[in-house]
Each structure stands twice: as C-alpha cells, then as structure tokens.
C-alpha cells in the first residue's frame, strides 16, 4: 500500500504503524454518569466494517505525524489521507 502523506506525498505503508479505528480520537467524558460503559465501548468495541474504514496511522519512519486514513478494508484502496491534528482541530472547533 502507498500512503499519500499530506506533507510528503506518496510513501510506502511500511514506514507507518497502524493503531486502529479513528473513533479512538473521540475519548469519552470521564465525568459522565455512564463513563464506565462509555470507556468499555471506546476501548474494546469496534465497528470493524468490510468497506470504507477511517483509521489512525502513525508515521514512525518519517515525521512522526498521526494520520487519519480512509481505506477500503476489502480492496485496501486508500481514498483519503488527513493529518490527525487537522481532523482534531475541526472536531473541537466551536460549531
């Protein structure tokens, strides 16, 4: 697989380390009444879809940036690569 890094252009996937579903960026609120269940779902349960999947990769053999990659788990085709920090900023920006 070739990952089209937003800053470096196309790089071999072996430079990167896979973490998992990009939902890991949305940490639940530890003060919530349902925090125990929320953290169980956050830490252990996954959609694990066959098809497009948003996932976190770490550019360990490069600039050590975190990426959010949209990849089809059936064909391995990568359709979108974003810097995780941009995604996080967008998510946290006041609506």
């Amino acid at each position: 697989m070739i990952i089209d890094h937003p800053l470096f252009g196309p790089r071999d996937a072996s430079e990167f380390v896979y973490l998992g579903d990009a939902s890991l960026m949305d940490r639940p609120d530890w003060k919530s009444e349902t925090a125990a269940q929320d953290f169980h779902a956050y830490a252990y349960l996954r959609d694990n879809p066959a098809g497009p999947h948003r996932e976190l990769w770490f550019h360990e053999g490069g600039d050590r940036s975190w990426l959010v990659i949209t990849r089809d788990t059936v064909t391995h085709e990568i359709t979108r690569v974003e810097l995780a920090r941009d995604v996080a900023r967008k998510q946290r920006a006041p609506q």
């Binding site: 998992g20 779902a41 252990y44 349960l45 996954r46 959609d47 879809p49 066959a50």
Partner: peptide
C-alpha cells in the same frame, strides 16, 4: 464475526 453479529445489532471486541 463482526459482520454477521452486526446483523443482530452487536458490536464485538474484534478487528478482522
């Protein structure tokens, strides 16, 4: 497993 159990409304502690 995840695909089939999703048909029963379940999310599993599994990645394929």
């Amino acid at each position: 497993s995840s695909r089939v159990m999703a048909l029963a409304g379940m999310r599993l502690p599994i990645e394929s």
